[in-house]
């Protein structure tokens, strides 16, 4: 890892203003390789700390926009960073760089799992990993809840979307189509009064 990493990082270090297409590709490939267990931290590390393409506040602003948009926030962030330096082609290269290593790892893991899923240890590891993965989602939800649910309407909308999707198993499209306009209207009304 060390040498590849050095080679990737040392690439376009001398030019600070222009991020080349190749550099976008390798930079986001590095993010994908670092991204074990949390790609958010890896993106910040590579884009802000190592390559200095973005200042921390630029990063936060782009991530904020990425979070309101539909889809995966970090895919959105990579799209916007690519576009910023090299237009639509830059976005495509950033995305290909970001996804290639994880996709290879994913298929390798899935193939290994298929080959060894009969072993008792692998069986218990999988049961535990599945439960652990549920815990990761639960923890993310709780963490967000603690930060975001600070007003009565916020709590009502969170409870409503949880109940509609998690308990009643309604289709997401219908739930969003009803709840999102209501939430926006409520917020407008709160702003007025």
């Amino acid at each position: 890892m060390g040498e590849i990493e050095e080679a990737l990082v040392s690439n376009d270090r001398d030019s600070d203003e222009i991020v080349t297409r190749w550099s976008l590709f390798t930079g986001f490939m590095l993010v994908g390789l670092f991204g074990f267990g949390g790609i958010g931290a890896a993106i910040y590390h590579v884009l802000v700390d190592r390559r200095r393409w973005l200042t921390p506040s630029e990063y936060t602003s782009l991530l904020g926009l990425g979070q309101v948009l539909p889809g995966a926030n970090l895919i959105n962030l990579a799209t916007m960073v690519g576009d910023r330096f090299q237009g639509a082609l830059g976005s495509a290269l950033a995305l290909i760089g970001l996804m290639s290593a994880p996709l290879v790892c994913l298929i390798a893991l899935a193939t290994l799992y298929d080959r060894f899923s009969d072993l008792p240890d692998v069986k218990s590891a999988t049961i535990a990993a599945a439960a652990g993965a549920v815990g990761l989602t639960l923890g993310t939800g709780f963490k967000l809840a603690r930060n975001i649910l600070k007003s009565p309407p916020a709590i009502v909308f969170a409870a409503a979307s949880f109940f509609a999707i998690g308990v009643l198993r309604f289709p997401m499209l219908a739930v969003i189509a009803v709840l999102a306009p209501l939430a926006v209207a409520t917020e407008f009304w709160r702003q007025r009064s």
């Binding site: 979307s161 939430a183 917020e187």
Partner: peptide, 14 residues
């Protein structure tokens, strides 16, 4: 206004 809905969705995911 959208983040509270997201919180509900993520806990529903779990």
């Amino acid at each position: 206004s959208l983040p509270p809905i997201v919180v509900g969705l993520i806990i529903a995911s779990a």
